[in-house]
Simulated assay, not measured.
Amino acid sequence: MTAAPALAPAALRVRGVTKSFGDLAVLRGVDLEVARGSILALLGSNGAGKTTLVRILATLLAADAGTAEVDGHDVAAEAPQVRESLSLTGQFAAVDEVLTGRENLILVARLRHLPRPAAVADAMLERFALTAAGRRRAGTYSGGMRRRLDIAMSLVGDPPVIVLDEPTTGLDPQSRLEVWRTIRELATGGTTVLLTTQHLDEAEQLADRIAILHEGRIVHTGTLAELRALLPAAPVEMVQKQPSLEDVFLALIGHDGPPATAPSGPTAQETAS
């Protein structure tokens, strides 16, 4: 009898990670796994410990206890390999606004010691639909363009894992949609994405799985359907569906593409009575 093939290791694996700052326990034994080529949304309110966990995975902060692995490399023991495997995009775009978009990408390619940095920059501009703006100063970009450039810079060198910490902070609805499309394309191309967010609709739209971090612990992980199933079914009544303010905003500005809502269904929606 042929043995079943071994499952591929998770791209991110966290076991029993704790972290305190003085008397304040921020992480209290976090367990988490992210499958390769998937998007996991890490939800939590301010102070839940999301950014602390991200900094530990990025080797910017040492855990007090527990283990963490990125692409099979131990965060504590193999920090250089972890930094090659993971790229972190913070809450605010870290582009140099004096440089052009192309120059920003060339700079990152040189810092990563990649051959032909100009060719790398041109390829990333094309990948993220920024070729036409590539020779403009990044300071002239819209919020969505700056964020796309920021993500492009993070992906120079093709790291297998990218962590997006609150990637749509401060963006208008149209820019937010641009970033959402970019994140979906990353996962489709095989990149593993850990997305931290406070926006529940963002997790609904993007995530294959969702982990809820509360008071330093993961209280539940699952698909959206699995999380919804935790609650009892509510009585329903049929009401006329009204467009959201975001739908109206995007329609009025002539946005090209579907609104940032769940896939369309019947003309009525279920609501709890």
Rank of each mutant, 00 (worst) to 15 (best):
P232D: 12
I106A: 09
A109G: 09
L252D: 12
A132T: 07
I56A: 06
I218V: 15
T18H: 05
A79Q: 13
D96C: 03
A123H: 10
R102K: 15
A58K: 14
A225G: 12
L27M: 12
A152L: 08
H220F: 10
G22K: 06
V98R: 00
D23A: 11
M238N: 06
A62F: 01
V26F: 00
E33H: 13
K50P: 10
A118P: 08
L130M: 13
E97F: 12
R217P: 05
F128G: 01
R146I: 00
D201I: 02
A65R: 09
G216T: 00
V75Q: 02
I183A: 11
L171Y: 07
I253N: 09
E178Y: 00
A152Q: 01
G37D: 08
I183N: 04
L250R: 10
S20N: 03
R209N: 07
A138F: 05
H73W: 15
H220N: 01
E126D: 15
R102G: 08
G190P: 09
L43G: 09
M1H: 09
R228M: 09
A41N: 01
A121I: 00
L195Q: 03
T89P: 02
A8N: 11
L155H: 06
T197S: 14
D74C: 14
T197N: 13
R146K: 14
L43N: 14
T100G: 04
T271P: 00
K50L: 03
G72T: 04
R176I: 12
F128E: 01
A6W: 03
E246L: 11
H220D: 13
M124F: 04
G90K: 01
A6C: 05
V98P: 02
P243V: 03
V219K: 04
A138V: 01
V17M: 12
D150M: 06
S87R: 08
A132N: 05
V179F: 01
A268K: 01
R36P: 06
V70M: 03
E215D: 12
A272L: 14
R146P: 07
R217L: 15
I210F: 08
L186A: 00
A251E: 14
T221L: 02
L53Y: 05
T131A: 15
M145G: 09
E185H: 12
R110Y: 07
V17W: 06
R102I: 01
A229G: 08
S154L: 11
T51G: 10
M153P: 06
L61K: 04
D158L: 08
M1N: 15
Q198I: 04
A62G: 07
R112Y: 10
S154D: 06
A109N: 05
L252T: 12
V179W: 02
M145W: 03
A272R: 15
Y141R: 11
L12D: 01
A132L: 03
D256V: 13
L57C: 11
L57R: 13
A118Q: 12
T182F: 05
P258Q: 15
R146A: 12
G29R: 08
L125T: 10
M124L: 07
T182I: 04
L7R: 13
V14M: 09
A272Y: 09
H214P: 05
V219N: 13
A268W: 09
R136S: 10
V108F: 06
S175C: 14
R146F: 00
L111D: 07
D74L: 00
G29A: 07
T67E: 07
E103H: 09
E166P: 07
R181T: 12
D96N: 11
R102W: 13
P258V: 05
D74H: 14
T191S: 03
